[in-house]
Lab assay of single mutants.
Amino acid sequence: TFYNFIMGFQNDNTPFGILAEHVSEDKAFPRLEERHQVIRAYVMSNYTDHQLIETTNRAISLYMANL
């Protein structure tokens, strides 16, 4: 899942690491979701930090390219 992918960046001092920290603390994050459209919609609806949203979009693109 995307959640498992992004958790691989925990403790990294990178934008993906920052995203992983936010996702791990977000109890409502769709952890079992595999459809990138649902993940993107969730982030757009629940996150207000523009940098975090952009990082999510980049992470989703990388995740999709590696499926």
Rank of each mutant, 00 (worst) to 15 (best):
T1F: 06
T1A: 07
F2R: 00
Y3V: 02
Y3K: 00
Y3A: 00
N4L: 10
N4P: 01
N4C: 13
F5A: 00
F5Q: 00
I6K: 00
I6Y: 05
I6T: 01
I6Q: 00
I6C: 02
M7A: 04
M7E: 02
M7N: 02
G8Y: 07
G8N: 11
G8W: 08
G8M: 13
G8Q: 15
G8P: 02
G8C: 12
F9C: 04
F9P: 01
F9Q: 01
F9N: 01
F9R: 01
F9K: 01
F9T: 00
F9D: 00
Q10C: 14
Q10E: 08
N11I: 05
N11Q: 08
N11P: 04
D12R: 14
D12F: 11
N13K: 11
N13W: 06
N13C: 11
T14W: 03
P15F: 07
P15S: 10
F16S: 02
F16D: 01
G17L: 05
G17C: 04
I18V: 12
I18G: 05
I18P: 02
I18H: 10
I18M: 11
I18Y: 09
L19V: 05
L19G: 02
A20F: 06
A20R: 06
A20K: 06
A20G: 02
E21M: 15
E21L: 15
E21N: 15
E21G: 12
H22I: 13
H22S: 06
V23F: 12
S24A: 13
S24Q: 12
E25I: 11
E25D: 08
E25V: 11
D26R: 07
D26H: 01
K27V: 11
K27E: 12
K27M: 10
K27C: 09
A28W: 12
A28T: 14
A28I: 05
A28Y: 14
A28R: 10
A28M: 13
A28C: 13
F29P: 02
F29D: 01
F29V: 02
F29Y: 04
F29C: 03
F29H: 05
P30V: 12
P30D: 03
P30Q: 02
P30N: 02
R31A: 05
L32Y: 14
L32W: 13
L32V: 06
L32E: 13
E33D: 05
E33A: 08
E33M: 05
E33Q: 04
E33W: 04
E34W: 15
E34N: 14
E34K: 14
E34D: 13
R35P: 04
R35L: 06
R35T: 06
R35G: 07
H36E: 12
H36L: 15
H36Y: 13
Q37R: 08
V38N: 07
V38A: 11
V38H: 07
V38C: 12
V38K: 08
V38Y: 09
I39R: 00
I39G: 00
I39Y: 01
I39P: 00
I39F: 05
I39Q: 00
R40L: 15
R40G: 05
R40Q: 11
R40M: 15
A41F: 09
A41T: 09
A41M: 10
Y42Q: 00
Y42S: 02
Y42T: 03
V43I: 09
V43C: 06
V43R: 00
V43F: 07
V43M: 10
M44R: 07
M44W: 07
M44T: 10
M44G: 07
M44Q: 11
M44V: 10
M44I: 11
S45D: 13
S45I: 09
S45C: 10
S45R: 10
S45G: 09
N46M: 11
N46E: 06
N46W: 06
N46G: 04
N46D: 03
Y47M: 04
T48D: 12
T48W: 07
D49F: 08
D49H: 05
D49V: 05
H50M: 13
H50F: 11
H50D: 11
H50L: 13
Q51G: 11
Q51V: 13
Q51C: 12
Q51N: 13
Q51I: 13
L52R: 01
L52D: 04
L52T: 03
L52M: 07
L52C: 06
I53F: 05
I53H: 06
I53N: 03
I53K: 07
I53V: 09
I53L: 10
I53W: 09
I53E: 04
I53C: 06
E54D: 10
E54Q: 08
E54V: 09
E54N: 07
T55K: 01
T55Y: 10
T55N: 04
T55S: 07
T55F: 08
T56E: 04
T56V: 14
T56W: 14
T56D: 02
T56G: 06
N57S: 10
N57T: 08
N57E: 15
R58W: 09
R58S: 07
R58Y: 09
R58E: 08
R58H: 10
R58M: 11
A59G: 03
A59I: 07
A59R: 05
A59M: 09
A59D: 01
I60W: 06
I60S: 00
I60F: 05
I60P: 00
S61R: 13
S61Y: 11
S61A: 15
S61I: 14
S61D: 15
L62Y: 06
L62F: 06
L62Q: 08
L62D: 05
Y63V: 02
Y63H: 07
Y63W: 15
Y63K: 01
M64Q: 09
M64G: 04
M64S: 07
A65N: 10
A65G: 09
A65Y: 10
N66Y: 15
N66D: 10
N66L: 15
N66W: 15
N66C: 13
L67C: 12
L67E: 09
L67Y: 08
L67N: 11
L67Q: 13
